[in-house]
Amino acid sequence: MSRTFEVAPGDAVHPGDPVIVDRYTTGARINHWITAASLVLLALSGLALFHPRLFFLTSLFGGGSTTRMIHPWIGVVLFFSFLGLFFRFWKLNLWKREDGTWMARLRDVLTAHDEKLPEVGKYNAGQKLVFWLMSVLIIVLIASGLVIWQEYFAQYTTVEQKRIAVLVHAIAAIVIICVWIVHVYAAIWVRGTISAMTRGKVTGGWAWRHHRRWLKELVTGKT
C-alpha cells in the first residue's frame, strides 16, 4: 500500500519553530468559503420560510419575495461550489480500516484522548462522515429543491410530487444544518484547526496530534 496516498497536491512541511504544514491551497480555501457562505445564507433564508417564528429572517434578504426568489439561486451556487470541493477532496475521504477503529473509540475522541486513537491520514473518520453526508444531502437538496422551484420548474411535476419534495427538502435541510453544526463545532473545539481554512497552514504539533500519518507521509516524501 502506497504511504503517500494520504497527501494532497499542495501539502508541504516547513521545518522551523514551530513546524508549519501547508494544508489547503488558496484555491481550496476560496472554494471552501464560497460554499460556507452559501450554506449559511441558505440556512438563514430556508429557515425563514420553514418556521413562522423565523420569518423575520427574510428581512436580511430584502423581504419575503426576494428571499423566495434568491434562495434557490444560492442553492445553485452551493451545488457547483461544493462540486469543486468534492472533486478536490473525495479521494482522501475514502473510508479506510482505521476509520472504523476511530469511530468505535468515539468516547476517546470526545474526551480528547487523541493518544488512544489510531494514527489517521489527512482526514479522520468524523471529517469523512461530514464530507459524505454533505455530499449526499446536497444532492438530495438540489434535486428536491428543483422540484419545488416554483418560478421555473412548477410545470414539470405533479402536486403530489411537490409535496414529497418539500418534505424531503425540509428534512434534508435540518440534517445538513446539524451536520454543519458538528463541522463548525469540531473546528472550534480542536484548537489550531481554523487556521487551516483561513491561512491554509497548521502547526506541526497540530498535525502530529490529529493527523499523524498525514504528517509522517509528508515528511518521508512523495512517490
Binding site: 521545518p15 519553530d17 513546524v19 506541526g204 504539533g205 497540530w206 502530529w208 504528517l215 515528511v219
Partner: peptide, 9 residues
Amino acid sequence: DERNAKRLA
C-alpha cells in the same frame, strides 16, 4: 506535540 513534530520534520 510541537516538539514531536519538530523531531520528525
